[in-house]
Design a protein around this nucleic acid. Structure first.
Lengths: 197, 197
DNA sequence: ACATTGCCATAACGGCTGTTACGTAAATGG
DNA sequence: CCATTTACGTAACAGCCGTTATGGCAATGT
């Protein structure tokens, strides 16, 4: 544990990692300042030193998680339909880290739905993700890999499908191992590709 | 407020309705015995009189909600593909009551994912729902309304799609009004029907 | 009419929560 | 080498939580 000065922001990121750990194991309801402190091997005094309030701590941790998720190395195996597939594969809980992220994400829904501000924030993020997906769908259509049709509808449907698959996988990982998730996604994409415009 | 004796079970159902109300508005995190009591215009003494513990109260309310959801009047506009569509429409938050139910449902996920017992219970319920859906898919295939292919896969995909659509609709009801939800579902079913086996 | 029982309010309990105040030791700057 | 700042630990606070104990009032059985 560093006792040196000056690495303020770095320490805040370490704290965030502890928040993620607690959320992934105990859920949002079990997220306590004392639990986070214990995860760090410290006390609540450390937390209050770096964050004015719990809300600020959680907000920072969730923002940082999203930032890391967006900035992580992503699949890029091709253009068109392959890039649509990549974007969707990047969401699924195919690895332990992705599972934790999705776990945290789902756990935060309860609080978000009760808070209009957070709810609007989520709606905005989903809309953004949908737009990015739509661009890839358009590209796939231009390559002739997907039949014509409203790309926004196709993107919305694909997003909903993956979102639901995430939830199913979290609740029943035995029934939805990675291969099965990929299989279901590929079937979905195959149906998109073979549908008559 | 009835002060007569003997309607013990009926009173427990009234309490459950208050639990639903609180969960739909404040979420699982805001579900407090005092909040439920206030919703009833009573005190916590009433609650402890009818339920030994909070866990028992919540379990009863959620079980009753599921029972009511299964027993409610359902769509039955036909057989085969139409019955698949009906089953999926019955899940979507197309009415205020269905929205509340889904809201409660999603809110309970945080606690469920942290509790292996509850998690297994959810996995079992989802598997059951999937099996029922699979039966309808098979019927639709036998009628020639759906191309051949593993009915379990088709059912899983449809379930995931609807589940994701539920979440999206809850977070962004403005972007997913009932017509849009139905539209997206019908598009999904149309793609299923037109896919080459 | 009376005793009993069901129904519920009131009040208090210990425990856990986020937050605050304070103390202190180490790192830093001059 | 000293003054200052940073980085925490410690301890306590009020507030809310679920739970329990107690008491009274009204409905019920006799």
């Amino acid at each position: 544990m560093p006792r040196t000065k000056g690495d303020h922001e770095a320490r805040r990121r370490e704290v965030s990692a502890a928040v993620w750990q607690v959320m992934a194991t105990r859920g949002f309801a079990g997220l306590t300042l004392r639990a986070v402190a214990a995860e760090l091997g410290a006390t609540t005094g450390l937390l209050t030193h770096y964050f004015p309030t719990k809300r600020a701590l959680v907000a920072y941790a969730l923002d940082l998680l999203e930032e890391r998720t967006l900035a992580r190395p992503r699949r890029t195996t091709g253009a068109g339909l392959a890039s649509v597939r990549d974007a969707l594969l990047d969401i699924l809980p195919l690895t332990p880290e992705a599972t934790d992220s999705n776990r945290i994400w789902v756990s935060s829904w309860d609080a978000s739905l009760s808070d209009p501000e957070l709810s609007a924030d989520y709606a905005r993020k989903y809309a953004q993700s949908r737009d990015r997906l739509r661009e890839r769908v358009i590209a796939a259509q231009e390559l002739g890999e997907l039949p014509p049709g409203d790309p926004a509808e196709i993107a919305s449907a694909a997003q909903a499908f993956v979102l639901g698959l995430v939830v199913q996988s979290l609740f029943d990982p035995a029934a939805y191992p990675p291969e099965r998730q990929v299989q279901l996604l590929d079937d979905h994409l195959a149906r998109l590709a073979s549908a008559r415009g």
